[in-house]
Design a protein around this nucleic acid. Structure first.
Lengths: 248, 248
DNA sequence: GGATCCAACCAATCGCAACCAATCTTATAT
DNA sequence: ATATAAGATTGGTTGCGATTGGTTGGATCC
């Protein structure tokens, strides 16, 4: 390939001096013209794939070196787009798709213990932020959730309200990003819980330790005590963890 | 599945230049388009089961590899879900997740300070988990990243290597979910940083405080000292934060 | 001397086929 | 009738060969 400067390939002279002293734009590589023609006549639309280079050199009757020089120009210009192993494509507008792996894929790989450790990594910090930043209305919503969870008369309903409580806390941070992280975690948690442990362990004793723990958390947040909120949430999750696995 | 890079599947052109200024909405996986069409024409309703992959490749006339790539996209998008031994199903409304808002939306709403607080909420905990669980190979990768960051001779390159270092730490937790949370955070961070602060602040002093902080973190992880790792990461982020905002 | 051509090689990707593990179905034994 | 085992089906994974854009070095031509 040619020499690179900071803008790209140094390729053709931009202009030349005729014998009569009049500058003339050279504009294009001969091959470049052929390529443009080939694309137009061939009816290629945005997104379409051009023939492979090794085929093009036969269609156009040029060497691969100069073909690639022409393609380089077209790519620099933005007309085409190339990628090794795939081919050369007519440029089109696509969404930049960041493409996180789907939750189902994650939930398949993550073990219940890892899930618990992830919750322990994130949720106490969220409780701390909530204590530091929550508005009065947010605290009100949290307390409402706590009460509904307490009054829940079925195990399923309790889980729903427990979910809502934890999410209300994340919402109380006033930090969209933290809320988004919590939601992401929670989505995976639902998938994992559904597929694995929870249902296997005993469902009975809607023991009141969780309710007490909830109270400690909510009180710490209402008291705007970040350290206590962090500790309370950590204790709560450790308690849940202990019930599931018998330890951390 | 295709090869993953740190952003996801390598697939179609990420961006393109509209020479005529008119954006042309195109490009999904091609197969993805076919699949969407197939689902619509086939009258599949939420909860219905799609034909097996080995049948679909005949109906659509594509290879199983690329079919699965299309299905991956649809699953990530939430329109289908799959389970080994059962099949592929159209997502039913009940179990459809609340649809995470796209990264772009979040990055628009989140302030740099909130971003920093989110990092402070998650990354120290990740460092702790890394110290507790990292394998020897993982530590090696981390140290390699640290060295590359140290040797970076441009600010841009440093940022890239710094990114890689932090991600290597998240990877060292061995916890797919934590890694996924980190990636989610990082995606938003890139969008926010790009749009707002970072570039506005001074770029000069590649001061060595960050390098020293990196060393402290890496050493703590290598020493398998979770508490120290947590503290070191927290100190590092506080230091970065101080440089950006002048305080926490 | 510089551009061009050619051939060989590299690395990313794709298509294919075989294999794995979870699940469902069916047959068989008690 | 129920329980258990064997087989079939399904999504998930891996390895191989072919294809494709990217790169390099030497031969050739002006």
């Amino acid at each position: 390939m040619g020499i690179m400067n900071q803008f790209g390939l140094i390729d053709q002279p931009i202009f030349a001096i005729t014998r009569y002293g009049k500058p003339v734009m050279i504009v294009q590589n001969e091959v470049q013209k052929q390529l443009r023609n080939f694309i137009d006549k061939g009816g290629y639309l945005p997104g379409d794939r051009l023939p492979a280079e090794r085929e093009l050199i036969e269609s156009l009757g040029v060497s691969r070196t100069s073909l690639r020089k022409g393609l380089d120009a077209l790519e620099r210009e933005g007309t085409i787009w190339r990628h090794v192993g795939k081919g050369t494509f007519i440029t089109s507008i696509g969404e930049s798709s960041p493409a996180q792996p789907p939750v189902s894929s994650i939930s398949r790989q993550v073990t219940p213990v890892q899930m618990m450790r992830a919750r322990l990594s994130l949720e106490p910090a969220i409780a701390r932020e909530a204590a530091a930043n929550s508005s009065a209305e947010a605290v009100g919503r949290i307390k409402s959730c706590r009460d509904k969870a307490f009054e829940a008369n079925s195990w399923d309903l309790y889980e729903i309200q427990d979910d809502a409580l934890h999410r209300a806390i994340a919402d109380a941070t006033g930090n969209v990003l933290l809320l988004s992280l919590f939601d992401h975690l929670n989505q995976v948690r639902r998938a994992v819980a559904w597929a694995q442990v929870i249902r296997a362990t005993e469902k009975p004793s809607r023991d009141h330790t969780s309710f007490h723990e909830h109270n400690v958390i909510v009180n710490a947040i209402e008291a705007r005590d970040p350290v206590a909120a962090h500790a309370a949430m950590q204790a709560h999750l450790r308690s849940v963890s202990a019930r599931l696995f018998g330890e951390i």
